[in-house]
Design a binder for these strands. Structure first.
Lengths: 238, 238
DNA sequence: TCCTGAAAGTGACTTATATCACATTCCGCT
DNA sequence: AGCGGAATGTGATATAAGTCACTTTCAGGA
């Protein structure tokens, strides 16, 4: 089988150690076996483009391992990052279900393992397995929710510091803290952070410098330390 | 039965003249009959609040007649309108499917007829009727798409005129034109338009005045006339 | 070890637009 | 008709943040 891009491929969902409790991974055995029959497992290197906005949907990808960046780009080249997809999540679901062109671009940020399912196979699978269909609906609900959250952040906030604070708080969710604060791994450049909160790279750098000066949060390398969470919460007006 | 708020209530989906081809209305007979059994038909006056953000979902509403405004409000009172819901569409679907609090507020803009379905009834219905579940998924896909579109508009555009032009073009979709341009009915105030594109009321007024001066588009009362569509398209950078 | 390209940091300048403070017009009601 | 509250129109002002043009720092490869 080999291990392309330094990944150990896991071919069988039923015995997969990467399985999370989320979405399709958590399907009951019968449905999972049917899923098993129609999926293709593949590995991608970092920086691979899975699909591009405007393309008509070939099917869905479910992410087993790695991170995938979802983004849109305007005609003048400005990019907005919609989401960093985590293992266990599905890509291209809405385009596939509604058979409309992908309106977002998916690009792997690091070597990834993915399962691909062709559109027709997937739709048939949903029709035959009510539990899977319900899970798909749940997955779409979550996508909607995170989209609405981003709309709130972009449309209702008054300033870049506010949006950045909101993002940091989002990242800090479910992380533990010690006496020095909470330590979070982020593998994003200032540029990418700027593209998430819809501002310029320079503004992110400056705002982060300001947060550091005020002892609110420090981003050094890929480690984020949140020193004063209440201050962040005040910034978002919570 | 009576006709509250000047509406003629239609109690039976099977013989309903309001039916559109979209979503649940378009279900095959068997599923529609099951739907019929669990729904409650009700009428609401203009300005009624169906649900508020933060509330846990009681169930879904499907809109038969009227318009409903979906919005979110920030802690400082700023409001952002996410969508104006048209007849045939469903409200509160994602919250109900994923059983998380509504993150948006729904308010009727005019007298409305709605079908309400309790959460448990609805979920059971989806489990038993694969075709309905698939339609629910499709509906959620559309919601995602329109959310992504709004994210694009808010995050990637450089100016208020650009966002306003984008909105006008969106409204003009599927409308016919005569020699004077295209005539579109909009029942929104400048304030509400501002809340859709995430800007201030004054900016909308000024931008609209500018469009009028440049013979691009004229909004008078509730009638919008688009005189120069190519100019709008240039503004959005298409 | 040095090299090199990417990322981060910083100053100066410009501009769109939020905000405040009004004047004016419109529309539904009695 | 005419009243009153909402919706619009408009000016003046302040400011956040985009943009440009650099320098400095960093990390990974030869």
């Amino acid at each position: 089988m080999g291990s392309p891009y330094g990944l150990e491929l896991v071919e069988n969902c039923l015995i997969c150690k990467l399985r999370t409790d989320s979405f399709f991974c958590g399907l009951p055995k019968a449905s999972l076996e049917a899923f098993e029959k129609i999926k293709f497992t593949a590995a991608y290197p970092a920086g691979a483009v899975l699909f591009v906005e405007g393309q008509s949907p070939r099917g869905i990808y479910m992410l087993c391992k790695g991170r995938v960046k979802l983004s849109t780009t305007s005609s003048d080249g400005k990019t907005l990052i919609l989401k960093i997809v985590q293992p266990g999540e599905v890509l291209g679901l809405h385009a596939t279900v509604s058979n409309t062109p992908y309106e977002i671009t998916a690009e792997s940020g690091q070597p990834c393992q993915l399962n691909f399912i062709k559109r027709e196979d997937f739709l048939r699978f949903l029709q035959q397995h009510g539990d899977a269909c319900l899970r798909a609906a749940q997955h779409l609900s979550r996508d909607c929710q995170s989209a609405y959250q981003q709309i709130r952040s972009l449309g209702l906030s008054h300033s870049a510091p506010e949006r950045l604070a909101r993002l940091l708080l989002e990242w800090s969710h479910g992380e533990g803290a010690d006496e020095a604060g909470m330590r979070i791994k982020v593998a994003l450049t200032h540029e990418e952070i700027a593209q998430i909160i819809g501002t310029s790279r320079e503004t992110v750098t400056r705002t982060l410098a300001d947060f550091r000066k005020k002892q609110i949060a420090v981003l050094k390398g890929s480690t984020l330390m949140i020193r004063n969470k209440p201050a962040l919460e005040r910034l978002v007006g919570a």
